[in-house]
Amino acid sequence: MVMPPATLKLMIVDDSNIIRRRIERSQQIDSLDFIGSAANGVEALELFETTDPDVVTMDLTMPEMDGVECVERLVARKPSIRILVISALADKATAVEAIARGANGFLCKPFTDRQLNDALAELLQDG
């Protein structure tokens, strides 16, 4: 698989610390460079301002600001951003909403390392 040569900055958003750490640890896409994580939508927007990430993994059920709203705000600020929603919410209406607001992929929890990497690879493929 040919990846874009330039490194892309990855931000992880999830209210669970262990999920954040797991995504950081398990992702093996060479072109991704982890730059930080946030525990809710508000933190994510703050981190976005200082680090300007290119790729985001986004939980949906979070305190403060939920993921769907955060997706919309991130896309408004940076249309080229690529967002993979990683959520336990398995209903289709939620996926439709997240993607309609600008997310580029949807991965349902629980997930294996391989599913995570496949989803990230697909996310970057046509970018």
Partner: peptide, 9 residues
């Protein structure tokens, strides 16, 4: 992705 999220089944 589109297929997998069809909410109108």
């Amino acid at each position: 992705l589109v297929r997998s999220i069809n909410p109108l089944q």
